[in-house]
């Protein structure tokens, strides 16, 4: 079992040894491993996205008393590969009145923060690309830059539906960033650190979801809104503003937005697992497998919610963020702080 546990770590070690055996200086070896890490993370993201699209359609299918994709390959497993090939082969249409530079840039820019987030995620024991001492802060800061790309895409397309959609996106993402950050504050106070590995280590005996249930629920709601997933998929709002910021995108550019959306789904679920469900910790199975299982459980929760609820209205959305989630998360921070002080005073 130990070998399965450390399969990735020993692979990393083997790579380093192999590079040293070529007589490379240390800085070069470091550079090479970083490239390998980046490729590995990208591969992880792509593989997950492809699988998630398939999973989402299957989950939706079974919730709606139908089968979902079932023609391409066994159980329709290659449906998403076929879709990806189709999107790649499509013409890249840019509207005549669009701001071409911004329009192109937005589709690339949306994807960068989505992949950058994975840098601070602990995938398993000692499996983290960069264990920053401000890991959580990095996650929130980088994650919120995606708003700019959505606004850019919606604005540059020069379409009224896109404009409405990107305005909704900005309003929604900024509003929900605040309860999201406050909900994480409770966890930070308990762990006493922003470093991901230390937060995981602090949950050795008890998952924070037990100590911070309110924070978890607040995080879950705010994260759904941050992801633009149903019932908070207002920026896309297919039934009223068609696809919002993405209405003019086609082919691979549209696929990039799609890719980013599912990459964000993975990263947000990964963060939830890291902060509330003990990260990669678990008995018997290798740590990275535990991590994947927990992440997919979170993803299933997100899908369950999406395929059950209708879309919320735009004014209710703002009301929920400012009048409900924000006060609740503030109270949670206060209660957590008081409790910590009390327990310290009692000498526990």
């Amino acid at each position: 079992m130990a070998s399965v546990e450390t399969v990735f770590l020993s692979g990393d070690q083997w790579l380093k040894n192999w590079l040293f055996s070529w007589g490379m200086p240390e800085s070069w070896v470091f550079l090479c491993t970083v490239v390998v890490y980046a490729v590995a993370v990208l591969l992880f993201v792509f593989a997950n996205v492809i699988f998630l699209v398939y999973l989402e359609r299957k989950v939706a299918g079974y919730m709606q008393q139908r089968l979902g994709p079932n023609r391409v390959g066994p159980g329709g497993i290659f449906q998403c590969v076929a879709d990806a090939l189709k999107l790649l082969g499509k013409e890249d249409i840019i509207p005549a009145s669009a701001d071409r530079g911004l329009f192109r840039l937005a589709s690339l820019l949306i994807f960068i923060p989505a992949t950058m987030l994975f840098v601070v995620i602990p995938f398993g024991r000692e499996m983290i690309v960069a264990d920053l001492n401000v890991g959580l802060l990095y996650f929130i800061a980088v994650g919120s830059t995606a708003t700019i790309a959505v606004l850019m895409g919606g604005w540059s397309a020069n379409n009224k539906y896109s404009l409405l959609g990107s305005m909704r996106a900005v309003a929604q993402m900024i509003s929900y960033e605040i309860p999201l950050a406050f909900s994480l504050l409770g966890v930070i106070m308990l762990a006493g650190s922003l470093r991901m590995s230390e937060i995981v280590a602090a949950q050795k005996d008890l998952w924070f979801v037990v100590l911070q249930p309110v924070a978890f629920i607040t995080y879950f709601i705010a994260a759904t809104a941050e992801l633009n997933r149903g019932p908070f998929d207002l920026p896309e709002g297919e039934q009223e503003i068609i696809a919002g910021p993405f209405v003019e995108y086609s082919g691979m550019r549209y696929a990039l937005f799609f890719l980013a959306e599912y990459a964000n789904l993975v990263s947000v679920s990964a963060l939830a697992v890291t902060l509330f469900f003990g990260g990669w910790q678990g008995p018997w199975l290798p740590s990275w497998l535990w991590f994947v299982i927990k992440v997919y459980f979170m993803i299933f929760l997100f899908m369950w919610v999406k395929w059950t609820f209708p879309r919320i209205r735009v004014d209710h959305l703002m009301g929920l963020a400012w009048k409900f989630l924000l006060p609740v998360s503030l109270v949670n921070v206060f209660v957590t702080g008081t409790a910590i002080k009390l327990f310290q005073a009692m000498g526990w």
Binding site: M63, Q64, G237, E238, Q239, W307, P310
Partner: peptide, 16 residues
């Protein structure tokens, strides 16, 4: 009606 409120699952049941 369900679908226009983005209730995708509500769409399938009556159609069944």
């Amino acid at each position: 009606f369900a679908l226009d409120l983005s209730g995708w699952t509500g769409w399938m049941y009556p159609f069944r």
